[in-house]
Every structure is written in structure tokens, then in C-alpha cells.
Design a protein around this nucleic acid. Structure first.
Lengths: 136, 136
DNA sequence: AGTAAAATGGTACTTTAGTATGAGCCTCAC
DNA sequence: GTGAGGCTCATACTAAAGTACCATTTTACT
């Protein structure tokens, strides 16, 4: 929202400057009206493209963005969250254990706690739930 | 690409029309130059927003779209694909069996074939691969 | 220093998942 | 009508995944 206001503010200023410039140019007779029109149109068009691009990107980013609040809310610990990410990559408990330099028992414990916290019955369900909650 | 050309074509035509209109208006003296400038700017801005919006949407849709060609390429049968989707929802073999009105044995067979075709070792990996290939 | 939470890991067990193999049935193309 | 591919299902097995319980050790914080 702050960004939107900022962008629209600069936009208005830019337009005012443009009008001033065009007025001056017309009065002084250095340019033809059509050229100035063309310049104004192109600049406005560019601004339009730019604004929308920013807005869309902000939107798509927010859709991909990880909901850290939700992670806290669920009470997931650092280690549990790490394990969750590895599960989502399709690794087995043994593979995760090797990757994180701990025993498979430890991973099993983490996974078990993870499933309770995510209210999932299986790791596949944990993946689905995590994705729907935007935490991975 | 075709769309891009089409959009830019219409854009150029629209600009030409605008210039003609502005020329006429200035000559006839009905409007002040500033107003015409403003109108041109607003219209161009709107066009800019519109173009970018279309382009971005087309992009985001293509990212979500399911790659049916890839499914064929992998040789996934109709039933196998159905099972794959259920796996991605986090269901167990037994649950999938009930949902599709077949025995668990059948699901196991499908899953096994599925894993070979997707070159996955586990169902969680199958989910990851499927998502990366845009087939679910 | 004391404490609570987190991290680690072990044993023992049950449940799912996945493999291998074989077999019956159906459909569609040649 | 024959064969290939797809769908179904069963048995028997191995391998993972997941649960329950307990016991240390680390870490972080007051």
C-alpha cells in the first residue's frame, strides 16, 4: 500500500512536469504538437507498464512468500522445519539424516512431532498441508 | 509472440488515431493543449497497464498450466495419473483404493509403475518431480 | 546457576509403502 | 482373431515410515 501511494505520487509529479514542458515547448514553437503528443504518450505508456509490472510482481511474490508467522503459530522448531523442507524435496529419513549429520532416529522423532503439529497422518499429507499454508 | 505483435499493432494504430484527433482538436481550437495532453497521457497509461496485465497473466497461467505433453511423454496411463494426483493430495494407498473403488493391491501396482516412469524412489519424490515437471 | 525447550538418539514395535511375480479380463488396432 | 497395452487383483516378501517411551545433552534465557 505504501509503495502504491509512492508510485502514484511520483506519477502525478511526472505528469505535471510533462505538462509544463509541453506547454513551454508549444509556446516557444520549437516542436510540433504531434511530437510532443508522441513523447507524452510513450512516456505515459512506459509508466503504465512499469506500474503494472511492479504491482504484479509484488502480487506473485506474496503468493510464493513463506508465511513465517504460520510456522511460529504451529510451534515448529528450527530443526523440525528443516526436516520438513527435506521431506518436501522427496528425501527418505535416512537421506535426511545423512544430509543433516544426525541419526535416522532423530529424524524419525522430528518427523513424528512434525506430523502432530501439522495435523497430518503421513509425510505426503504434511507436504500438501505445508504448501497450502505457504510455509514451504 | 503472435499476441505481442497483435497488441503492439493495435497500440500503434491507437496512437495514430490519437494524434489525428489531437491535431484536429488543436486546429479547431475547441480544447486547450494541456487537456489534450492529459487525455493522451491517461489513455496511454491505461493502455500500458492493460498490455502489461495481459502479458503477466499469460505468463502466470503458463506457469500453472499442466503439461499434458509431458504426461504422454512419460507414458503415464490415465489411471496412473489419477493415482498420482491422489498421492499429491497426501492420501495413503488404502485411502486412494477406497476413493477409486479398487483394491489396495491395484493401487500398489499403479504406484510402483508410476515411480519407475517418474524415475522416483518414493512417493514424496514423485510429488516433487511431478510438480517440477508441471504435470500436477 | 537453574530451568525449560529443543535436539539428539536408542529400543521395540506396528503400520504403510514398495517390489516381484503371476494371472485374468477388457479394449482397441492391425 | 490375435497381440499389445491397460486395469484389475492376489500372495509373499522387503524396506521404509511412523509410534511410544525413555534418556541424555545442548541451547537459550532469566
Amino acid at each position: 500500500m505504501k509503495k502504491t501511494i509512492l508510485i502514484f505520487g511520483s506519477l502525478i509529479i511526472a505528469l505535471l512536469l510533462l505538462f509544463q514542458f509541453s506547454k513551454y515547448a508549444v509556446v516557444s514553437g520549437d516542436f510540433q504538437v504531434e511530437y510532443i503528443m508522441a513523447i507524452v504518450a510513450i512516456i505515459s505508456l512506459t509508466i503504465g507498464l512499469f506500474i503494472n509490472n511492479k504491482a504484479q510482481k509484488a502480487l506473485s511474490v506474496s503468493n510464493q512468500k513463506i508465511d513465517f508467522k504460520k510456522i511460529e503459530e504451529l510451534g515448529l522448531s528450527k530443526r523440525e522445519y528443516e526436516v520438513l523442507k527435506e521431506i518436501a524435496l522427496g528425501l527418505s529419513n535416512q537421506e535426511i539424516a545423512k544430509k543433516l549429520f544426525v541419526s535416522e532416529s532423530t529424524i524419525k522423532t522430528h518427523v513424528s512431532n512434525l506430523l502432530v503439529k501439522l495435523n497430518a497422518k503421513r509425510r505426503t499429507q504434511a507436504i500438501q498441508i505445508s504448501k497450502s499454508l505457504n510455509i514451504i
